[in-house]
Design a binder for these strands. Structure first.
Lengths: 343, 343
DNA sequence: TGTTAGCACTCGAGATGAATGAGTGCTAAA
DNA sequence: TTTAGCACTCATTCATCTCGAGTGCTAACA
């Protein structure tokens, strides 16, 4: 069956209406509110076709139609009009993000907050993978005779640190010397590039500090090894305001899922390419998240990348959410820090 | 009216039953299951008395009784028997917390997770107030000619850091020299004790580094000024499993509250003294939290203190929750790190 | 004087069923 | 090809009814 312009127009109208009302849409209301020059009977025929083609579904015989995931997909890909963020919305997002932000983590957290507040859905974000970042500095800071602080700083300001107790007594100057040595050999490499071979090289040279070096190595390998990336969720309560989650069981499923950072971090990076992506209902690999859609922006700053996005019901205001993320993208691309990351 | 032993026994039975079932408790079931040597009629009379005294309430005429906040209070203060954590539960809590933990923040997060998993309620925690901690080290780390990393480390390992861009070009040695100077003057003080006067002293001595010092000062005053303490919530979805929150509106109220870290951090430190405290229903100053109880453990490690606790319905298993927190307390008091914090 | 048996009464929860109305599919006419 | 009309479906709503858990009170009993 052919998908004529009229069918598209009707499908679009149905989806828009359903996004707004969350109620199955009937032929009469479409005829009246969207396409007054056609009768409801005609629309009815077209709707029957659209259902047959898989774009619509009917909860039960005497109800209106609701869009299927396939319907939403068509809508997102070629039917919807770009939402233009209002001046107010843009300014709001900018101000939330603008306060002097030095570290990417904080920026992302702010961005998630801004997204939640503009879209009224739930935001999720994953901060960058540390391993891909270039090491900018590695410091061993003297604290007490047997206590030092180890610090890793990458270009993006992502940082790991750890306090360790050393068998070996150490003083401030020695710590400084050690730091310089590490930096000389390792700065500028990505964490992935720091191999055991390189570290052993240093170890050999600084044999007298044996156990500190060993601990530093442990620390580095641990940081490299852990892929527990920082996942954050903002505004999950917003979901409870939506009619689709007035059933508490349904709500529980999704909230449970959002609360579990492990599973969440598994699904986030499912789209490889940069840019803004829409994942609709069953396209989502995770079972519990069918019924939800995710709009995800995979950002990339210098070498590292992460994700930030919005979770909502499949009946999501895609147009607005995509616009918000595109705006976020435009903001992040002109980030002052980005240049610094590459100098 | 006098509160005889029999009344106490009946009240206790009612509360225990209600905690278990969440259903109004009738006289007959008490007679059968708890006090077989009294008839339901007698119990009925006593229950009427207890209601008149304010310990019980009746949702409607033909329903059983439910405990009032005052009833719970009496129960917690003098009726309930101490719950003995099972070996399994203790081991579980210990293993969750035991993985090599260096920083207090991480420890608290683990502890909250353990609490959630043992009690099946929601845990909240607030990490210590940075300002009370003694400064252990203050570092200025060279990153790039116009970029340094500022770090504050306190005894507890609580740490703040910030990357700043300097007008002044700086090299690695200079950063080290600056750090040493700062440390000489400021290490060992609490953040509160670091006054502008002291800083100006350093500033005068290191005039040649003008703008870095200024930025360091800004950073310090900002850290001192911000009382945004780190609040975390674990397992808020658990609330949805409870019958009292099968009404979505009620659930939304509480979840909303738990999601808002600002309001949450205001209510947490409401009990001044250390130790484990129980706050029941209306005793809670926050309006949205009437209907909830909080069991809170205010810990103190060295100079700094924070809170960790469990949020649940007023019909909470106080006995078990208190036991869990007491256990946590005993664990934290024998913390190996605590000694280090004071050396 | 305290305890108990008995009974009338209350009231929420759940079941039943009729009315309502939104919406459909189909047919026949324009 | 479009539309008007009509029979049909089915979720929702509302009133009504029944059921039973639980109470309070009274009178009898120990």
């Amino acid at each position: 069956m052919q998908m004529g312009d009229r069918k598209k127009k009707i499908l679009k109208a149905i989806i828009q209406d359903y996004i707004e009302t969350a109620e199955p849409v009937g032929s009469r209301s479409i005829a009246k509110r969207y396409i007054p020059d056609l009768s409801s009977a005609t629309i009815r025929n077209e709707m029957a076709d659209l259902e047959e083609m898989g774009y619509l579904a009917q909860p039960h015989t005497s109800a209106g139609r609701i869009p299927s995931d396939m319907g939403y997909r068509l809508f997102v890909d070629s039917l919807m009009r770009k939402y233009a963020l209002s001046m107010q919305e843009m300014v709001h997002m900018q101000t939330v993000m603008e306060e002097k932000i030095q570290e990417l983590d904080v920026l992302i957290e702010r961005a998630a907050r801004a997204l939640t507040s503009v879209t009224q859905y739930t935001s999720i974000a994953m901060t960058p993978d540390v391993k891909k970042g270039r090491l900018m500095s590695m410091q061993i800071v003297y604290l007490q005779p047997h206590k030092v602080l180890l610090i890793l700083v990458t270009e993006q300001g992502v940082m790991k640190n750890r306090i360790v107790h050393t068998d070996h007594e150490i003083n401030s100057e020695q710590a400084y010397e050690l730091s310089s040595m590490f930096n000389k050999f390792l700065a500028g490499l990505t964490l992935e590039e720091i191999t055991l071979a390189r570290i052993n090289q240093i170890k050999a040279m600084m044999a007298q500090y044996g156990d500190i070096i060993t601990q530093m190595v442990d620390f580095i390998t641990e940081v490299i090894g852990e892929n527990e990336r920082n996942v954050l969720v903002q505004g999950s309560v917003n979901l409870l305001n939506l009619p689709e989650y007035s059933d508490i069981e349904r709500a529980k499923d999704v909230l449970q899922f959002l609360e579990n950072k492990e599973t969440l971090s598994n699904i986030l990076p499912q789209v490889a390419e940069d840019g803004v992506h829409v994942i609709i209902g069953h396209e989502n690999p995770t079972l519990g998240m069918h019924g939800c859609s995710i709009v995800l922006y995979n950002y990339k700053l210098g070498k590292v990348g992460g994700s930030i996005g919005v979770v909502g019901p499949t009946r999501m205001d895609y147009s607005k959410v995509v616009a918000a993320l595109e705006f976020l993208k435009s903001q992040m691309e002109t980030l002052p820090d980005k240049d610094n990351a590459q100098d």
